[in-house]
Amino acid sequence: MAMSGGKDDGAPMMEMNMTPLIDVLLVLLIMFIITIPVATHAVNIDLPAPSPTPPDVIVEPEKNKLVLTATDEILWNGNTINDGQLRTLLAQSTQMAVEPELQFEPEALASYDLAARVLQIIKASGVTKFGFVGNERYRTFGSAG
């Protein structure tokens, strides 16, 4: 007895039965959805301990020069510092009665990523007296020093 309602002449069906294929695909889809990890877990980050400001790195009362070198160093008034020390020094400068001017001078071959990261730290610190210095050396395109 045929389910199609038409006459059954005994010839084989020429159409593919899609129902089992769709069932298998739905089961596979459900299995993939179940096996995807839930994205609501916390990401643990080990942050470095804050380092105290070395005694030779101080905040000048009138102006401080921040230089980014081609070797990815951050120089504060000529002394090499890291990101944590930069945050500390910027916090100290903003707490002074008269905030000193921060002069930002990246070298010609300094990393753009380092410059962007340092500028983000400066912006987050709330420094209000800020200036770019040394840009007059780069007036013409292609001169690197």
Rank of each mutant, 00 (worst) to 15 (best):
M13P: 10
I45A: 12
I34W: 06
A42L: 10
F132P: 00
K63V: 05
L68M: 13
M3D: 09
K129N: 05
A124K: 03
P61V: 02
D46T: 14
Q95E: 08
E62H: 13
I30Y: 02
P48T: 06
H41E: 13
E107P: 04
Q92E: 12
N82M: 07
P54W: 01
M18L: 03
G78F: 04
G145M: 12
P50F: 03
T88F: 02
A108T: 09
L29Y: 00
V38W: 13
E15A: 07
P52G: 00
W76M: 14
L109D: 15
F32I: 11
D83Y: 13
N17E: 06
E136N: 13
S143V: 12
E62C: 10
R137Q: 13
K63G: 07
F104A: 11
L66R: 12
I22F: 01
I121K: 00
T19G: 03
V118W: 02
G126N: 06
P12K: 03
I36V: 07
D83E: 14
P55T: 00
H41I: 11
T88S: 11
E60P: 07
P61F: 01
I45N: 10
L75N: 14
S4E: 04
I36N: 01
M1V: 11
E15T: 09
A2N: 10
Q92G: 04
D72A: 11
G145A: 14
L119W: 02
F132D: 06
T53E: 03
D46F: 06
Y112C: 07
D83V: 11
M1R: 08
I33F: 04
P48N: 06
G78D: 05
